[in-house]
Design a protein around this nucleic acid. Structure first.
Lengths: 200, 200
DNA sequence: ACTTGACTTGGGCGAGCGTCCAACACAGAC
DNA sequence: GTCTGTGTTGGACGCTCGCCCAAGTCAAGT
């Protein structure tokens, strides 16, 4: 094998882990499967990571970061708050449809973290980032649409995460985009009623 | 070991599997751990079940059944639709708080089923039952409160499942009942606006 | 009393797992 | 050219997994 810095290999192993886990599930992401996916021999894995859990830690952190950047990028001004929020939600649903395994991995990793004392704190961290993303989304959308929210942001953010989580879970089971869109419409209708024109 | 019919042992193994998986996660529910929890020797497991997957099949079916009966039992008349629905939702949240592992197992089993070709159909079946439960809940609540829904039942049922799924997932991470209750209030406010007095 | 069929059990099979180690290869510093 | 530190690797360790077999035990039917 050509020589390569350990840092570079770490990055490639993380990417390989995401690929194999998206395809076949977190449980199938064994050290051997990840190393093979990255085209490395097994021993390289433990030269770069102290343990499988160490890789899982970095993987969760990496994915949450990606998710947050996506939320930030999804925002663009629309005619009103309903359209602005609707576009962002549509962006997420399109991403979900294109990378179902990706979102599935996030759930699986979260559940794995909840059950693994060594990783338990990452479950909290993952959702902390989700709430942060939701807050960014709601705040930016309101600004772009020139309105303000009538409920405290923490409650609103938790509602958004709740709905996206639920919509994702149900979609992952039946891949029924039409029904998910119907639910999205209803959620948007309601979301719009929770705002009022911004006073300034 | 005292003699016992295979059917009886199957039931005890299922109960043991639920206990050990609620406590330590689905992944920890190995054939050995389940047999030990049931106080049987390992070989008994494979005398009663052809394979671990066969037990998982029956476990998912059993749990979905329990869940459906719980939804049916949770309904009792309130002053209006908001209170009627609110009581049912509260009943669920109380159950969740008392048996977190139980609901966690349902998610883990669902994700496991999604990734296991042999069990894939059960993921669909599980959610089919959820939608059925939600339909029962919504229909009964509307009847008890003397109102009717202004949206088609399939969309409403999917919304309920979406929200309960999302609320459960988020609660399982932080066990923050207060925040979950706040979300519940907002959801109920909106739910009430989706009804109108029943014409008759 | 004997047969039959259902139930019980200890032990073992082959496979896969995470992790580790000792030996080796190589680039850059001296 | 030698040394040093970083990267590479085949092979093995101990363990757990799902599953299976062959020999046993026992209650009921005849």
């Amino acid at each position: 094998m050509a020589r390569m810095s350990a840092d570079e290999r770490r990055a490639e192993l993380l990417a390989a882990a995401l690929r194999v886990m998206s395809r076949d599930g977190v449980a199938a992401g064994t050290t051997r499967a990840i190393a093979a996916e990255a085209g490395m021999v097994l021993a390289t894995f433990h030269y770069c990571f102290r343990s499988r859990n160490e890789l899982l830690r970095e993987l969760i952190i990496m994915l949450a970061e990606i998710e947050r950047e996506a939320a930030r990028a999804a925002m663009q001004p629309g005619r009103d708050i309903r359209e602005t929020l609707g576009q962002a939600l549509n962006g997420y649903l399109e991403h979900l449809e294109k990378n179902p395994g990706h979102e599935q991995v996030l759930f699986e990793l979260n559940h794995h973290a909840l059950r693994t004392p060594e990783l338990r704190d990452l479950a909290d961290e993952q959702y902390r980032q989700y709430y942060e993303s939701a807050t960014i989304l709601l705040t930016t959308a309101a600004e772009l649409a020139g309105v303000e929210w009538q409920l405290e942001m923490p409650v609103l953010a938790r509602m958004v995460v709740t709905m996206i989580d639920g919509a994702t879970t149900t979609w992952l089971v039946d891949h029924d985009t039409e029904k998910t869109q119907a639910v999205r419409e209803v959620m948007l209708d309601y979301g719009a009623t929770l705002t009022r024109p911004a006073r300034r």
